[in-house]
Structures are given as C-alpha cells and as structure tokens.
Design a protein around this nucleic acid. Structure first.
Length: 661
RNA sequence: GCCGACGUAGCUCAGCUGGAAGAGCAGGCGACUUGUAAUCGUCAGGUCGUGGGUUCGAGUCCCACCGUCGGCUCCA
C-alpha cells in the first residue's frame, strides 16, 4: 500500500508503507548515515517511527546542533553499555548531551573509581559496541514494568518513582524518558536497556567520531549531600574532521589561558608561601592593574562618584549588624582575637561604606551619594573552586555603594547600567547578557521589599532595552541583583559586573536622611562592582585578547631596536620621542642579532616593534612592525609614526554614557 | 570541601620494572656588531613540593600534609 508524505527540501513522495523513514533518509537525505533523526509534523522522533499518510517530514542531519545532540546522547548510551560490560554490576544514573559533548554518571561496584587510564579501555569497548552495529529500539512501559526492568538500577528506580509520585521536578525527569503516562526505554540489540526519552540514531554504526575527555566526581542530582558518582565526559561529532577541529580549538583555548600567559608575560604568580588563591603582581602585571584602575577611577570621578577608603578588617559586631556573620560566615576567613575583641577580614565593603554614610546626619540634598573604592576583600573559597585570577581568596572589587531616595532609584539603576556597558565596552568587551537574580532560599527582609527591589531592576533593563534572563533564587542574601555575563573572543562566559538593590542593610544599620518635608527616611542602597573584581577582569582581558592587550593597556608599547650599535643614539632618540608623547618605550640594545630581539619583542606581544638602522638615521625614518602583522613597514617617517602611536596609546572614551546625566 | 590526575633547575619537560639527577630555553661570563621570529662558546642552577614510612638502597613504592590541574558543589 502506498501513502503520500511531504519531505522538506525534497517534496511530496508516494512511498510504500513498508518503507521505513531510515531507508527514505538514505535515499533522500544528504547521504547514508547523515540523517540521524527526523521531525515528524514538528516533533523530534526516531527514524524508526512509522510514517502515516500526510506526514510532514524534516530530516535532522548530523551536522546540525540538534543532530549533534542526538549523536552525543546516543554515544552516551554506548558509554554506559561499555562501562556495564567492563564493570558488571555498575549502576548508571544519567547521561545527557551537553554543549560540545556528553557525560554519563556511574556508581561502580564496591565503590570503585575510574582512573584516567580506564578511559582508553572504555573507548575500545565503545568502539566494539559501535562496530556491532546495534540498533536502538524504543519501547514504552508502565511505571510498574519500568520499576521491574530497572530493579537492579537504583538511580533509574529513583527517577521513575520520583515522577510516579509527582514529587520530583517533572521537566528533568521527562529528559530521562519518564512522563506522567509511563516511561520509555531504549533497548539495544545487545540487550542493554536504558531509560530514555530519545530520540536516538537508528544504530550504533551511525556513531564513532568521539573521544572520552575526562573523569570527575559529580554529586547525584547535583546535591552535595547525596552520594558522589563517577562521571565520564566525552565529546562526539558528525565527522572525523569536526572532531579534530574541536580538539584543535581546545588546544587554541588552552594557549589563551590567563594562568599560562600570566607566567609567560611575567604578570603575576601565586606563591605557595603566601597561600592558595592569593596572587602577587609582578611589575608588568602591577602596571596593567594600575592602568585598569586609573582608567576606572577617572571615569568614576567624572560620573559623580566620591572616593572612599576603608580597612581590611573589622570587629565582629560590624558583621553582626550587617548580617554577614549570620548569613555569610561560611564565606569568611576565621576570626582573630585581639585585646579581648574578635576581628574578621571583610568579605564585602558595604558595611564600611555604610559607616561613612552614617558618620553624620544626611540631607536629601546629598543624595544620591556615591561612594567608590577599590576595596580588597577576603573570602574563604573552597580549595577546589580556586581558578587562577578568576577565582581567588583575596580580591579587589571596584566597589561602590550608592545611597539614594526611593524616587531616585529607577534613574540611578538605569544610569548605572549605561555606565557598566560603556565601561566594559571601553575595554573592548561588548558581548553581554544580563541576568536578574531573584530572592534565594536564605534571605533577610520582607517579601515586599524584595518585590520592589526586583521590579526596579527589571524596569531599568526594560527601559534601556538590554536583553536579560531571570535566574530564580540566585540573588544575594540581602538583595536581588543584575549580574552581567560576558562572552569572550572564544565563546567563554564570565560573570563580571553585579548590581544589587538593597533596603535591608540600610535598615539594619538604621540609616536615615532628612527629607525635604523634614521627615526621617531610610535610603535605598545600590551595591555595584563593574569589573567585578580587578583580578578576574584582568584574567578575562588576558584571555579575550590572548595576551595581546590593546596598546593603551600594554605594559610595554614600543621597543626600539637599533640594527647595530652604530644606530644606538638614534634609537635612543626615537624611544625618547615616543616617551615624549606618553608611550611606554625602551631600547633593546644591539648585543644580539636583530632576529633574536625581534622574536623576543614579538613574544612579549609588544604592539610596536621599531627597527632603526643607518638608512633610517639619514632619512629620519623608522621601520615599523605592528603586532599581528608579519610584514614590516620600512622607511616610515618618524613624525608619521609618532602621530599614529599617539592615537594608538590613548585611553578610550566611554561610548553611550553621558557624564552629565 | 568532594572525586580523579599531577608536583624533577626560573620555564618546558626526559629520567624503564627501586641501583651514582639530565636536556632545551631563560640567567652569569666571553666572543660575535648584527635590516626582521632563536649567533657561538663557556659557567652556574635541583635535600626531585614537605614530612614520615618500607628497603642494604627511594625521584621511582606506601601514608599524611601543602600546592596545582580537570570536574562536582559554591561564587566576583
């Protein structure tokens, strides 16, 4: 019997009802095994799903996001099968596709752990499964049958029971093949069965371009209090070329690692003698910090901020009033006893800025009062979370607390968002996403205050037209916040700026100001950091620019190389002229061949490497080597070079922010 | 903090199943006087992360701690 189906990009076909979509896909898709699944009337399903008359079919090709995600999910199943073959009795938990790969969580018999060398053996076993060309067959069962099938798989049982009793988050469970109606499983022709929603590729022979990448522990359901499972990560692609391209990209990303570049460019290091997560900045790194901070300080002054300076520690009562000892103690360094008092390193600057506000009576005429400080705070970060400059235990926030009246709140938040975007933009970072983090489980203050504060943040974002997502429960204990995430040149996401609307702390400290009507009012307080932390921001800049910082931030901007000693005095004159227009320049004397000196300067990522010889001296010219170009430009008039240099080394302007607002 | 891996000269790394600590780069000194990504020679550099243990003998095996890396959890 024939039936008509419509296939996207192919057209209407009359097909034998005995034909499977998989067969059609081989004939009408881009090629054998390139179609991994299909959308049948808009629904993503297996190729084995029977076709009905009038169906509209769209092939899902392996080289699309959806296609890859199916490949990865199926590869994860193969991983689970391989592990259960090698470790009989292993329990498998969940194994989803993730960005760029997949993972699967296991519990091995006898609390065994995977070791790195196991990966190779597992890969080999996976290749066997793939070579066997096992089919993936979808089956639906009732909850009762599901519990029976997975009776020796406690994690699967927990997932099924969770949904059956409706006590679990059903969205997670449906990913795993459980719905209110029952469960779906995929059985491979080898007898391996996994709980899964699908779809999958028709057969394991569709797979093969994969690599297991790492192992780690992972808590069951992401909960620290539950057992820790053994996770294996892998990546899978539609072709050998795509897999190799991805692995190559990882290598390139590793070259940008700020920890590696920080060492190579002699910027900073973490002496074990000082302690984990506590960096020291070498001259070039300290210069970079200085440049970042000075730029920021000047921008803040012009934007109506006033500077504050506060100590690094305080007596415990301050943090009792602020609530930090009640809500944030886990994040603080342990106390110090002195002269009968208990001191703590500050984990945040806000209580100290509040004391400045509180130092005398305040009038509405002073508001908004914007206190700004590069405030160094200390936080106890668990050892496993430390990560170069991006996650440290001693950090300096470009921190400000803005005290304002309720009716100034909306304007102030909007102004702040513009200021953030302009400042980050000046550093060449323009790919942002804002997140509104709402009330967490542990919080202080009334629900109403939280609602007002959260609404003011959302309203400001809407007014400016910045795209944002809501991050439920991610707020600080005292305030909802807008976090700005940015994506760097290689697609990594970082959290930088944070902006929080807080009524709690002003209340806890009993802050007030006298209004126009001579009443006493409680100010709102905005907490905000734009870099986030100077350390993390530096890490982001280094990775974003792969160490080749914009000229205005480069520790060395110009190196002048005399071809031979005879050109030394001219080289010095050129370097002096560069310094004269405010560039950071020095001469690398002719003790070594030119090539060696060029190489060193290039490896130091100096924006301008200037070569001068006899010919240049006679003609008043220089040879210019711009960073990023391998072709030197000879015979450039010194004056012309200096003019170019002077615009290159100039600090950027804030675009899109008016200081006079 | 948890799981796994790792820690040898300033850096990058060799060092086999336990049997006299190595190389390249960087650094010092000397020579070379250089027109576009490594000039040559020479010297110096390490209680093999720290502390215990096993052994006739430990960089190598075991334990603990410190630190780093990849994740989990947490976060600027």
């Amino acid at each position: 019997m024939d039936l008509n189906v419509f296939i996207k990009d192919v057209g209407e076909l009359s097909v034998d009802s005995g034909h499977s979509a998989a067969e059609l896909a081989k004939r009408y898709g881009k090629g054998p095994k390139v179609v991994v699944a299909m959308k049948k009337n808009g629904e993503l399903v297996d190729l084995s799903t029977p076709l009905d008359a009038g169906d509209e079919i769209e092939w899902v090709h392996a080289d699309t996001d959806t296609g890859r995600s199916i490949l990865r999910h199926s590869t994860a199943h193969v991983l689970a099968q391989a592990v259960t073959r090698l470790w009989p009795g292993a329990h498998y938990a969940i194994g989803p596709a993730i960005d760029e790969g997949f993972y699967y969580d296991f519990e091995l018999p006898g609390s065994a752990h995977f070791e790195e060398k196991d990966l190779e053996e597992i890969e080999t076993e996976m290749r066997k499964v793939i070579a066997e060309g096992q089919s993936f067959e979808r089956k639906a069962y009732s909850f009762e049958d599901g519990l029976e099938i997975f009776s020796d798989q406690p994690f699967k049982v927990e997932i099924i029971k969770g949904v059956a009793s409706q006590s679990e988050d059903s969205s997670t469970a449906s990913e795993e093949g459980v719905s209110q109606a029952g469960i779906t499983v995929y059985a491979n022709s080898s007898g391996f069965v996994d709980l899964c929603r699908g779809p999958h590729v028709p057969s394991t022979s569709y797979l093969g371009h994969f690599k297991l990448t790492r192992i780690s522990g992972a808590y069951w359901r992401g909960d620290e209090k539950r057992p820790q499972l053994q996770r294996i990560y892998g990546t899978a692609w539609e072709s050998k070329a795509a897999l190799e391209g991805y692995l190559k990209m990882l290598e390139e990303a590793a070259k940008r690692d700020h920890r590696k570049l920080g060492l190579e460019l002699d910027l900073f290091h973490f002496p074990p003698e000082i302690g984990s997560g506590l960096p020291v900045f070498h001259p070039k790194g300290a210069l970079l910090r200085y440049l970042m901070e000075e730029f920021s300080r000047k921008a803040h002054l012009r934007a109506g901020y006033e500077f504050a300076w506060t100590p690094h520690l305080a007596k415990e009562n301050l943090f009792n009033i602020s609530g930090h000892l009640q809500w944030y103690k886990d994040g603080m360094f342990p106390p110090m006893e002195l002269e009968g008092s208990t001191y703590y390193m500050k984990p945040m600057n806000c209580p100290m800025h509040i004391l400045i506000y509180q130092s005398r009576a305040r009038s509405y005429r002073e508001l908004p009062l914007r206190l700004f400080e590069f405030g160094t705070v200390y936080r106890y970060e668990r050892s496993g979370t430390l990560h170069g400059l991006a996650r440290v235990r001693g950090l300096t926030q470009d921190d400000s607390h803005i005290f304002c009246a309720k009716d100034q709140l909306a304007t102030e938040v909007e102004r702040l968002i513009r200021f953030v975007l302009a400042l980050l933009g000046a550093f060449g970072l323009t790919n942002f996403e804002a997140e509104v983090a709402t009330r967490p489980e542990k919080y202080i203050g009334s629900d109403e205050d939280w609602e007002v504060a959260t609404a003011s943040l959302i309203e400001a974002l809407d007014n400016i037209g910045v795209a944002y997502k809501i991050a439920p429960g991610e707020g600080a204990f005292y305030a909802p916040k807008i976090d700005v995430h940015l994506t760097d040149a290689i697609g990594r996401r970082w959290q930088v700026s944070t902006l929080q609307v807080d009524l709690q702390e002003p209340q806890r400290f009993d802050l007030g100001y006298t209004s126009q009507d001579n009443t006493s009012e409680t100010p709102y307080m905005l907490h905000r950091a734009l870099f986030g932390s100077v350390e993390r921001f530096m890490a982001i800049l280094i990775e974003h620019y792969a160490g080749a910082l914009p000229a205005w931030l480069s520790p060395t901007q110009v190196v002048v190389l005399p071809v031979s000693e005879g050109s030394m005095s001219y080289a010095k004159a050129v370097s002096k002229a560069a310094k004269g227009i405010g560039a950071r320049s020095h001469v690398d004397e002719a003790r070594e061949p030119l090539g060696a000196r060029i190489r060193r300067a290039k490896m130091d990522k100096v924006p301008f490497v200037i070569v001068v010889g006899e010919e240049d001296e006679k003609a008043g010219t220089v040879g210019v080597n711009r960073r990023g170009s391998s072709a030197p430009e000879r015979g450039v008039a010194l004056a012309a070079f200096l003019e170019e240099l002077s615009s290159e080394v100039k600090e950027p302007e804030l675009v899109g922010f008016s200081y006079d607002d």
